[in-house]
Nucleic acid binder design. Sequence first.
DNA 1: CGACATTATGACACCGGTGTCAGCTTTGAA
DNA 2: TTCAAAGCTGACACCGGTGTCATAATGTCG
Lengths: 339, 339
Amino acid sequence: MKGKATSFDIAHYAGVSQSTVSRALRNSPLVNEETRRRVHEVAKQLNYKVDKNASNLRTQQSSTLALLLFEDPTSDESQINPFFLAMLGSITRACAKEGYDLLVSFQSSSSDWQADYEDSHRADGLILLGYGDYLDYQPKFRTLIEQNTKFVCWGASVDNRPDLTVSCDNYGGGKMAAQHLLATGRTDCAFIGDASDHSPEFFARYHGFKDAFLAKGITLSERKMANAISTEESGYHATRSLIANNIRFNSLFAASDLIAIGAIRALKEAKINVPDDVHVVGFDNIAVASFVNPPLTTVQQDTTLAGQMLVDNLLKLIRGEPVENTLLPPRLIIRGSSI
Amino acid sequence: MKGKATSFDIAHYAGVSQSTVSRALRNSPLVNEETRRRVHEVAKQLNYKVDKNASNLRTQQSSTLALLLFEDPTSDESQINPFFLAMLGSITRACAKEGYDLLVSFQSSSSDWQADYEDSHRADGLILLGYGDYLDYQPKFRTLIEQNTKFVCWGASVDNRPDLTVSCDNYGGGKMAAQHLLATGRTDCAFIGDASDHSPEFFARYHGFKDAFLAKGITLSERKMANAISTEESGYHATRSLIANNIRFNSLFAASDLIAIGAIRALKEAKINVPDDVHVVGFDNIAVASFVNPPLTTVQQDTTLAGQMLVDNLLKLIRGEPVENTLLPPRLIIRGSSI
DNA sequence: CGACATTATGACACCGGTGTCAGCTTTGAA
DNA sequence: TTCAAAGCTGACACCGGTGTCATAATGTCG
């Protein structure tokens, strides 16, 4: 047998027509039980596998989802944000569970999207994942919607946002972080992250945090905020600049764990002890968080559930079922950096 | 315009035949420059994208590679080995660079492979990635080869191994670790990992390590070895059992960073100080390694290069070019756990 | 001016499945 | 006995491209 076996080969050996082979292999109730068995038998012997391209072409669907990972343009080439890697893992699993394949692609947010995965029938739908400047994306989202592309997006749910999102309750998570710091009596707090509305997730975390302090009558000082994107490096520099400017604080909320880890490095360098002098709380609960010194208190996002929901919602969207934005509950993980 | 545009639509609007459209879009030298321009124009306006399924079906190739990730069957569902995640990142990038898509799939080594990615024409070739019991895989590798499936494998290069591999020089890396410990004067060494030939990578690391000691006339004690698979948990338990049996040592070589991290936890718990009482060296240089306490000395595997080589070699194999097993040089990263 | 090469294009078969429709048996009821 | 319904099966068009071959138009040269 040269080349791969086709359904015609099976038909020949099983002594039936190719149509019947196709039906038998998909267990159509139309074929006789005995015929079905014989066809399966031959197919197995010839190690026959349905040609996905032919099948997809005819049925006009691919049983494949595409995951587009947007990275902070400034991030190190070699290192991917561990939070996204965790998401990738859970999305892969969720896809497998639903019988879908997963195409993975990295996109630099600056360049043009190769979002033609759906246009070219390579994928039935898209999962978009990434921090970064949300305002840049908005027009592209609209284009996707205009073209009736099926996609879901991980990130903050913003009212006027036109896309379907699954996200962590970032606002609630920020609140949790604040309430924890308040409970430990550390009310003089710094914030490292991005409080502008460019990054809706950081924005929500910050506001939840701020509002919880406000509820206790405490206003966060603008001076104690520093911008950072979600990298260790960026968190380090932001914190260093606060320290260099002689800004004092006894607690610090970082918009992500990577930022928090960078912050801890800067604090250590300045001989500021964590947690004695400064309590630190992060966000994400990446794998590293429990191993840093001291172990990092953080707000956990349930990546397993998140991946599952992204896939579920996307499949619903593809099948034309009603879907709504999904908000996942965060959970506070208290470790040594804040007690 | 209902549905997506096809090449016939373009042909209609551009006033040429569908054949010409197909040629024009692929910049065939056969079409007139002016025609080519017009076709591209119309295609852009209609947001036309070549249907990958149709194209793949006709050309019998998919411009797609599949990455099969094998996990230790015992590993935690939610947590993927960070070393593989790093590899995944670099493989994705390498694929993109070569114009290939990447399908990602997790496989539990116990279950039957869904390695029909190539049979079903979904991918042109396979990349296999994973620790785990190598002997289990051998028959499957043979099957793949019999079916003329194109695949490359990350892992130790074993002489009689029938597949094409890219791997780190595990033997040399083990040697480096040993020489470093010898240089620091810690000659009473424990080994946590798997020294059997079930895991060829761990096997090679252990032998490089052992041979370097032998070269100095030092024989490693069998009693100071404990089996572990590549998880933190497993490293923790293995080390604990050594301690519980009152085995003494002043240095420890772990077959992977995850194991080393587990080992450090067990040592700390037993009030054994790292590095004062015991020097620890790991393998992989995963992202966490620099953040644990103390920072972990380890043998780095260059994941960026590894991903690139896996993809390059696989593509060569697909194109029928000659390929050889590739051995990548490791690098010793000295950190606080051993000085 | 005729023979022939060159260039540009269209017609058409083909890749390997899926879905529709028609046809042939077989069974059962009238 | 007759006819309808149910159960299986095969023939065939079709999905949307790609590659081959034939053909028309144009240019070239003896």
